[in-house]
Amino acid sequence: MYIFIYNGDINMNFKNEQVAELIQLNEDLENYFSNTIIPQLFVDANLRLRKFTPPAMKQFVLKEDYIGLPLNDIKENFRYPNIINNISTVISTGKMLEKEIQTTDMRWYQMNILPYITRKDNQTNGVIITFVDITARIKDLKEQEKLIMEHELLLDQIAHDIKSPLAGLYLTCDLIKIMPENKSPKFKLMTENLERGLVNIKKVIYDLTESRWAEQKYQAAEELLDLPHILEDVRLALAPQIIASNVHISQNIEVSEINFARRKLRSVLYNLLSNAIKYTPADRTPDIKIHSYQEDGYMVIRIRDNGIGIEEEDIATIFEKFKRVTSSADGSGVGLYLVKSIVKNAKGKILVKSKLGHGSEFKVYLPL
Rank of each mutant, 00 (worst) to 15 (best):
F4K: 06
Y6A: 14
F14K: 10
K15Y: 11
K15N: 10
Q18C: 02
V19A: 10
L22R: 08
L22K: 11
L25Y: 12
L29H: 10
N31I: 07
Y32E: 02
P39G: 09
P39S: 11
Q40F: 09
A45T: 03
R50F: 02
K51N: 15
F52D: 05
T53H: 01
M57Y: 01
M57H: 09
V61F: 10
L62C: 04
I67Y: 04
L69I: 02
P70D: 01
L71D: 04
D73K: 06
R79C: 14
P81T: 05
I83K: 04
I84G: 03
N85T: 05
I87T: 02
K95F: 11
L97K: 12
E98C: 00
K99E: 15
I101K: 03
Q102T: 02
T103H: 01
Y109F: 15
Y109Q: 10
Y109D: 10
Y109S: 07
Q110A: 11
N112F: 00
L114S: 14
L114N: 14
P115K: 03
D121V: 06
N125T: 11
I129A: 07
I129Y: 03
I129D: 09
V132K: 14
K142Y: 02
Q144Y: 11
I148E: 06
L154Y: 14
L155W: 05
D156W: 13
G168A: 08
L171S: 15
T172C: 06
S184E: 13
F187E: 12
L189K: 14
L189R: 12
M190W: 02
R196D: 12
L198K: 03
V199L: 09
I201R: 01
L208G: 09
E210M: 04
Q216I: 15
K217T: 13
Q219K: 14
A220C: 06
E222T: 06
L225T: 08
P228H: 08
P228D: 10
V234S: 07
R235N: 14
Q241E: 14
A244D: 05
A244I: 01
V247D: 10
H248Y: 13
S250Y: 08
I253F: 13
E254I: 01
E254L: 13
S256M: 06
I277V: 13
T280W: 00
P281C: 01
R284L: 15
P286V: 02
K289I: 14
H291R: 15
Q294R: 11
G297Y: 06
Y298Q: 06
I301A: 00
R302C: 08
N306C: 13
G307R: 07
I308N: 03
I308K: 05
G309E: 03
I310K: 09
E311D: 11
E312S: 13
A316V: 13
G331W: 12
Y337G: 08
V339Q: 05
S341C: 09
N345W: 08
A346F: 08
A346Q: 14
A346S: 15
K349D: 13
V352W: 04
V352D: 09
K353Q: 15
K355H: 07
K355P: 00
G357T: 04
G359T: 06
F362A: 02
F362E: 00
K363S: 14
Y365A: 03
L368D: 15
